[in-house]
Amino acid sequence: MGLGLAMFSNFDFSVILNSWRYLFFDGMAFTLTLTALAAIGGVVLGTLIAMMRLSGLPVLPQVAKAYVNFMRSLPLVLVIFWFYFLVPYIGQWIIGSERPIQVGAFSSSLITFTLFEAAYFSEIMRAGIQSIPKGQSAAASALGLTYWQSMGSIILPQAFRNMLPVLLTQTIVLFQDTSLVYVLSITDFLGAASKIAQRDGRLVEMYVFAAIVYFAICFIASLLVRRLQRRVAIIR
């Protein structure tokens, strides 16, 4: 007990009170926006990749598989660096400008996370699509639905519902992963905490506070996902 008290005796929690607006309105707002947009982009792209992989057409499945395995072999930090430097050149190439174009930190991270997480989301969606009995697509074809109609109104809605808890869990992982934009000195939640920490020399308070906030959000979110999982399980 004595140790615990001594531990916190020279803490100065006022640094949090003085900076919370910056931490949440700048930092957390960036983190949440990035998480939400990258999750949506990742699921959409991931679903397309999963459909490519299961399409049975020539080449497409191999391309999809290579993309997924490639992304999953690389550390996210390296991928963040890659895109940070690559995106300006790709932009230049697309619009045919003289010089590499300036891409903001936000766009660069959004592209990175969408493309990176799409590889992980695609594996989830692949499992989801495969979990739907073959008879379902057979029945859809028998009714005269085209491939896209059957995917859009029969297979994917069921796959999404079955996989919703897993997709949300992966989104919590994505939320945690966004903290890695720290390596680009971007002001996400951790970046904001880190900047205050350095400015005021209050590393202990700021990092402990950041940990508590991340923990609270992720813990509550995963409790909600578990509750949802039970409900989905009952409906089935």
Binding site: Q176, S179, L180, L190, L203, V204, A211, Y214, C218
Partner: peptide, 16 residues
């Protein structure tokens, strides 16, 4: 250990 980002854990061990 699952609900705190790895990077934050790294800082906790190293700085805190």
């Amino acid at each position: 250990f699952r609900n705190i980002p790895l990077l934050v854990q790294m800082f906790l061990w190293y700085f805190v």
